[in-house]
Design a protein around this nucleic acid. Structure first.
Length: 158
DNA sequence: GCCAACGTTGGC
DNA sequence: GCCAACGTTGGC
């Protein structure tokens, strides 16, 4: 079992959307970066745990946890001309992009802002807190996972 | 809305 | 295979 962090714009899919249907598997599609794709395709496994990170919002940060309910399969959106994720160069015989399914696990009682995460010295190796990083699927070490979980257990007083 | 960072594209 | 131009991400 491995740990991951997935970025999502909460306008598109948020932790509350997942929480609203806790039994449902949600399609996690639209990953169009090769490094992120390779993680999804080669390493993300059924049962892995995922921090759900809300990006392009105020404030950005980690909102909760999901788990992988289906390992990588061809991302259907790449073949749909109407989709913003359509890729004309991808052919069904050799699909270029993959999707996974995720399922709700928990919503943090306290949203963990990026700002807060940046202040935790032991998290400074995470691509997330590194300047200019755009990776939307990234591995999280067990140590980082524990550190972040412990932060959610703290009070609002800093 | 700005723009830094960085990935991708395409001419050569 | 280089690299300038261009497009996208995503915090601010």
């Amino acid at each position: 079992m491995a740990y991951w962090l997935f970025k999502t714009e909460p306008d598109e899919l948020s932790i509350d959307d997942l929480a609203a249907e806790p039994q449902r598997s949600f399609l996690w599609d639209g990953v169009r970066n090769y490094q992120a794709r390779n993680f999804l395709r080669d390493q993300v496994q059924l049962g892995d745990k995922v921090f759900i990170y809300h990006s392009s919002c105020t404030p950005p940060g980690i909102a909760g946890i999901a788990s992988i309910s289906r390992a990588a399969y061809p991302d259907p959106s790449q073949f749909k001309p109407d989709s913003p994720y359509f890729d004309a160069k991808s052919v069904p015989q050799t699909p270029r992009w993959v999707a996974v399914d995720v399922k709700f696990e928990q919503k943090f009682a306290r949203f963990l802002t990026l700002d807060k995460l940046k202040k935790i010295g032991t998290l400074d190796q995470m691509p997330l807190v590194r300047k200019g990083n755009r990776l939307s699927v990234m591995p999280v070490t067990e140590q980082e996972w524990r550190t972040i979980l412990s932060l959610t257990a703290l009070s609002n007083q800093d």
